[in-house]
Amino acid sequence: MPRFAVIVFPGTNCDFETVSAIKKAGGNAERVWYKQSLKDFDGAVLPGGFSYADYLRAGAISARAEIMEEVKALASDGKPVLGICNGFQILTEAGLLPGALRPNRIPRFLCRWVYLKVSDAQTAFTQFYKDGEVIRMPIAHAEGNYYTESLDGIRITFQYSDERGNVTEKANPNGSLLNIAGISNEKGNVLGMMPHPERASDKWLGSEDGLKVFRSMVEWARR
C-alpha cells in the first residue's frame, strides 16, 4: 500500500483530516513533522493551515525549510506531491509550481462552498474524474488569488465555475487568473489547489467529491 507523508509545519491545521481522507482512499498516511525525513515515502502532501502564521507571505517561510529539498526530490522522481490551500502557497513559494497566490480581490478571508470544473483529468490527482466534470468543495483562504506572468509549463487542473461548469467571472471567488483553483506541473505529478478536497471526503461533510483526488493519487503511486 503506498505510503504518504502529510507534512506538518508549526501552524499547519488540516493534517489529521488529510491523513484520514488518504486512508479512506486506500492509501497509508502519516503525519510527518517538518524536521523529520521523507525517506521511504511514496508521495507527500502539504496540508492546509497557517504555517508560521503566514509571516512575510503565506507559505514563504515553510517553503525554505530543509524538508522541501526532499519534497523536490520526490517530485522530480515522478512521485505525487499535493499542496492544499496553504500547501499550494508553499509549493509556489518553493518554486515547485509557477506563479504566486495573492490576497483575495476583496481583501478578506473566504470560507464557503464552491463549484469546480475539472479542466484536466489526466493528472495524478484527477485521473478518476472526467474532463469537464463539475464537483463541489469548500474553500477557506485569504490569499488564493492566483497570478502568473506566463502559463508555460502549467496545466490548469481545477477552475472555479458555476454548477453547470461554466467558468464565469461571477463564479470566481477571489480574483484568480482564468478562475484558476488548482494547477499542476507538466508531468502532472505535482498539484496545488486552494479548495479543500479533504473537507469534501464524506457524505456527512456535505460532499465526497474530493475523495477522488486522493484515490487518483493513491492509484498513481501504486504504479
Partner: peptide, 9 residues
C-alpha cells in the same frame, strides 16, 4: 531574491 521578495509579484 531568495526570501524577502517574491520575484513573480
Amino acid at each position: 531574491r531568495r526570501l524577502l521578495a517574491n520575484p513573480v509579484i
